[in-house]
Each structure stands twice: as structure tokens, then as C-alpha cells.
Design a protein around this nucleic acid. Structure first.
Lengths: 202, 202, 202, 202
DNA sequence: CATGAATGAGGATTCATTCAT
DNA sequence: CATGAATGAATCCTCATTCAT
């Protein structure tokens, strides 16, 4: 009888191991040996399931994007208003809660750095960001409408919020002691609401 | 007759080369050979002037910090008001002008990633950020005073601005096409002013 | 009801796959995985039918020898004279016709290279060559007799013809563009006949 | 004081080592470690002087071509007639003498095999063969003239001689016991002269 | 100070072979 | 017989660092 394929499971293990190792040591420091050790697999097996190291990284980008999407959706499910949905988006990215995954944030920071000089990674990285920004733009438009404000300069607002989030990821990974505790999500929500408040009515 | 030491000049060349190479290839991709080639020096000479690769990186952090400081000071010199000084700070970090140095931004992003798993780098990286945040806090306090507002939640504001700036660095390096052109400085200034506007008076 | 063994069929598939893959990629490049893929079999199955990779190569030598023998025999069947039989031998090896198998020639070249440093392969390779040379020697002796010439220096002639054939194999595989089209068989036949012509009568 | 470059010397050592190792073990078997060991160098040094393994092989092709050329020229220097020059060419390739280099022949056989599936190698390999065939064609034309024969079918003759030589290389490497001793050069010269003898006069 | 050859410890990747199912 | 996951040794190549000159 043929063996049952466990490729998906193995790939998942390996991707998770890359995330964990990369969070500690960066992409360059995430050696195949370290990944295999973390996943408790033989090194050769990693290359049985992935063509090369970069392919694991690309899979990790997908995994993290899916994870962020899930966090947003589980929060948005309970939201009644545009305000709540917008806050769900921000909290999904920035809040520390029971579903927080510090490794994921650190890994995402490392991925950003890699995408600067690896076209394959950049492609998926940018695709994920573009999708998130598109979602965010829709949420903001709804929120502006809910508040009866003119939705001008939305692109800059979307870009600014995305910068804030990415920067918060970076600094929480590299300079945690310089940041106030649990400040990111409340601060960003506060900023955005004040911004909308001061926007002209329509 | 003793020959004049050219150590400082050489060190400067090497640090500049690291910045340039790192901007293109990241820290892991910045091999000593590549640095030496860029600096037009023999590889061996690099290790005469620096104990090891990390020491160059630490020197680069200092160099970039000094450069950012300079950009701020030359802009602040002409400032009359707290508002102008605050804008000088933001523009010094985010504006594209004749003194823009895209390599520097990219290199700073790579340094952030490194500092996540290299204690020596983290130390200087955090020191630079701490100094910048301290300066920013003073500027904000002045600006709040100038506007007659209560300076509450300053630390979160400082952290938020710093997140925005770091995030803008990252995204301009890794996802430039997703960002509006020249949006960062104006957007951040707008946000901050709206924030102050909506702050209670004292 | 006992299942009929399909071992012979499978072995044949695998040997054929090695021939095809080796023709393209050489012996070192003929990985078990590539062979299995070409034969549309699971990699593990290859080692069920063959102890190791070399054993497949040895089987391929036999297969190719048998194939060459067949080509000769089907041509020689119609031959009436020693001249025709000799020409059948040369054409069987060198002529391009409906039964041409370029993969077989390329594979034979690769086998020659392997036999230089693999005693097991060398043994079968030399055995095949020895048998062919023995057959050729008989054909030449008959042809000399038919022409009424003294069969002196037969061994050198046999060796020379064999060199020519092997060299034509090599060059048609590695330097086809340097060779005239379809020159090999006619040229060699011409040479041999002129050689016999100039041989002293007996 | 700057170190004196010894790159040419080292490259020569490494190429010679590849030739020796390849003669015994083939190209795939000529590991960098084995080459370095043979040359008594550290493995890393091999890659300091050559980008990769294939670059060594390409250098070896050049080296062997130069060597063959030298053998021909030193023999041709003493030649007075076209006949002697033609024999010099054949002897340079096939005769065993004080300047024989069995490793070179074996290495050339391995190179031929490689060139079948490595475009970079094929390019230089074919270039060498093309140059040799061009030289040979000129020599044959002179010899035909000297004998007062019509130089028809020269290309086929050139190709045939080249096949013979290549085949002699292969068989002397892979099946020496099947060949008569020192038969190759005399036999080929004999064939060629008989061929010319039987050529129509002009 | 300067040069560039030399070293050797990794690190990614390949692959024949084994083996549980 | 068949499958394909698993293993781990072997190999190419990179690169920080050293050092003789």
C-alpha cells in the first residue's frame, strides 16, 4: 500500500521552524541545520519538501499573511460598526492578546529586510502589503462615511497607518525598552480618530 | 619624518562602503571583499582598521546618527518657533531634498534587522534611537507649550512618531511602489498638528 | 491466484530510462530520481529491481550490445557476400536509418567514460567490445579471402575500425556541427575497401 | 610591500591537478577536495583562483590544446615535406614517445563526455577540435598536392582522421588490452597513405 | 600602512539508498 | 510489488579572518 503523503504537515512544520529560528537569528542566521533541529527533522528532509531556503521563506510570508488575516477576521466578526471594524484591523496587527505571536512579528521584520534585496521575496511581501492596504482603505472609507466626513487624502492615511504598524513591528523587535507598554494599538486608534475628527464634514 | 596616519580617512571610506553595499545587499550580503572593492581598498586592509565586521557596522551606526543629527541641526538653525523646530526634526528624517541619502535609509533598515540578534549592534542602535526620542520629546513639549496645550501622553506620542518614521524607512526601502510620492513628512506633520489641535488646553 | 511478476518489464523500463537520461545528462547527472521520473515509476521501486545504480548501468551495457547485435543481424540476413556482410557491420554501427537511436550512441559514449574508472563497468564494456571485434575480425578475414588478398595486419585493421567507430560516436555526440552530414559509414567503408585494394595478393 | 602575485603559477598547479585527478576518476569524481589534495593546496584556495569547478575544466581544455599544439610544432619543425608534416600531426596526437602524457589523453576523453552536456565546456572543446581540423585539412591538401592527387572529399577525410584519433583516445583509456601495442599512429598513417595512393591523379 | 594569497570552518544543496506503510 | 518519505554523507562554494611579504 502506498504511503500517505504528509507533505502539507511537514511543510507546515518547517515553515513554523523557520519563523521561530528567524525571529531569533534573522534569515541569514536561520541555517537549514537550525531549522531542521528546531523542527526535529533530518536536514535532508527540509530539501525534500522545499526546493531551497528561499522557498521556505516565501511559504512563511504566506503563512504570516494568512495568520494576520485570521486575526483580523475573528475580531471583525463581532464588529457592528465601521469604527469597530477599523479598530479590529489595528488591534489585529498591533494588540497583544491571547493570540499574540511575538515570533511572527519578529519574523515579519526580518522578511522586510530580506525583501529589500531578494526579488522573489519582495514580490510576495509587497503583494501581502498591498492586500492589507486595500482592505484598510475600504475600512477607512466606511469609517469616514460613518462619521460624515469627507474621505480626502485616503491614500496618505493608509500609507501612514501602514508605516506606523511596520515601524511598531520593527521597534518592538529591536528596541522594546524604548517603547511604552502596550501603547501601539491605542495610540494609533487615537491618532486616526483625531484625524477624522478634524477632517471637514461633507 | 613620521608619516601622517590616514586611519580616520580609511575608516571613513570603509564605513561609507559598508553603507553602500549594505543598502544593496543587506548585512549578510556585505562581504568584506565587496566592501573593500567598493572602497577600492585591499581586503586585508579592512581588518587592519577594524577588528571585525561588526565593528564596521557599529561605526556605521554612529556615522548615520551623526548624519541625521546634522540634517536636523542645519534645518533647526533657521527655525524661530517650536513649530518650525518640530517640523525640522520630522523633515530631517523623512523629507527628500538635496541632502537625501537613500543608501543611508536602506542601511538603517538593515541595521535595525541586525540589532534584533546582535547585542553589540543593538546597544548602539538603541542609544541612537533613545537620543533621538529624547530630542523629539523636548521639541514636542515646546510645541505643546507654544500652542498652550497640556503635554499629556508625550511618551506615546514620541513613540508613535518614531514608529512612523522607522516604518516609513522600511517601506520606502522594501515597498516603495505602494507608497504615495513624498507623502511621509507632510503626512506626519499633519497628523501631529491635528493631534495637538485636539488636545485639551491647559 | 498468484500475481504475474513484471520484473523483466520493469527492469527494461528502468534501463531504457537510464539510457535516455544519460544521453542528456551523463551518468553522474542521471540521478535515480530522474530515471524514475522518466520511467514514470516511484524512486523506491528502482532499488527494488536493482541493487544500486551501477547495476542499472551494467544492464544498459548489455541492452545496448544486444541492440547493436540485432541491427547487425537484421542487415546481415540479407547479405550474400562477405563484402555485404562487412558493410552491414559498419552500417549497423554508423549509418543513420529508420532504426537509428541517437540516445543509444550518446549513452554508449557516457558508458565509455564511466568504464575508465569503474572496474565493474569496464568489465562488461570490454567484453562487449571484444565480442564485436571478434565478429569484425571474422568478417574482414572473409572479405580478404573474397578479394584474394593476404589477411595480414588484421588486428590493427580491426582496432582501427573500432577506433573510428568509437570516435564517430564521440564526435557525433559532442561535436556534431564539425562533422559532414552522414559521412561516417560511407567514409569508413571507402577506407576499408581502399585498404584491401592496396593489400598484396596471396 | 605588496605581495607578488602568484596566480598564474597556482592556476597552473590546479589545472594540472584536475588533469591528473580526472584521468583517474572522471570529472564528477574530481572533487575540489581531491584536486586540492593533489595540488597540495587548501581547498578554499582553489576557489580563490577559480570561480568554480567548471572554470578549471575550461582552463584545462586550453592547457591540453596548447600541449597538443606544442607536440605537433616541435615535430613539424624538423619536417621537410608535406608527408613528414602530416605524419608529425598524426604522431603528435597518437604516438607514445618521451613526451607522452597518458593523463592528458584520459583527461581529454573525460572532457569530451562533459562537453556533451555542458554548453560552456562544449564551446571550448569544439573550438579546439575545429582548430585542429583546420590545421589537418591544410596539411592534407599539401600532401595531396605533393603526391599529385586530386584533393576531393577532404572534409570527410579530415573528419575520419579525427574520429580515428578520438576513438583511439577513448579505447586506449577504456579498453587498452583490446588494442595492439603502439598500433595507432602507424595504422592511421598507413590508411591515409593508401587512401591517397588510390585517389585519382589530377 | 598595504597587499593579496591562504586557511578552514561553515552552509546550502544533492542524492543514493533505506524503510515503514 | 509499490510508494514516497526519511536519512545522512558528500560536495561545492563562500567568506571572515590571518599573515607573510
Amino acid at each position: 500500500m502506498a504511503r500517505r503523503s504528509n507533505t502539507d504537515e511537514r511543510r507546515g512544520q518547517i515553515v513554523a521552524a523557520l519563523q521561530a529560528v528567524m525571529a531569533k537569528a534573522g534569515y541569514a542566521g536561520a541555517t537549514i541545520a537550525a531549522i531542521a533541529r528546531h523542527a526535529e527533522l533530518a536536514p535532508g528532509l527540509v530539501h525534500y519538501h522545499f526546493k531551497d531556503k528561499r522557498e521556505i521563506l516565501v511559504a512563511l510570508v504566506d503563512s504570516l499573511a494568512g495568520y494576520a488575516r485570521q486575526r483580523y477576521e475573528s475580531r471583525a466578526a463581532a464588529a457592528q460598526t465601521a469604527e469597530q471594524r477599523l479598530q479590529a484591523y489595528i488591534a489585529a496587527h498591533l494588540a497583544y492578546g491571547s493570540d499574540a505571536q511575538p515570533d511572527a512579528v519578529a519574523a515579519w521584520v526580518m522578511i522586510g529586510e530580506q525583501s529589500a534585496h531578494d526579488p522573489d521575496v519582495r514580490e510576495v511581501y509587497q503583494a501581502v502589503l498591498a492586500a492589507q492596504m486595500k482592505l484598510l482603505k475600504g475600512l477607512l472609507r466606511q469609517r469616514f462615511a460613518e462619521r460624515g466626513r469627507r474621505a480626502r487624502g485616503l491614500d496618505a492615511l493608509v500609507a501612514g497607518i501602514t508605516c506606523f504598524i511596520q515601524g511598531a513591528f520593527t521597534l518592538s523587535t529591536t528596541a522594546r525598552p524604548l517603547l511604552p507598554t502596550a501603547f501601539a494599538a491605542p495610540t494609533l486608534i487615537d491618532w486616526v480618530e483625531r484625524y477624522i475628527d478634524t477632517q471637514e464634514e461633507r
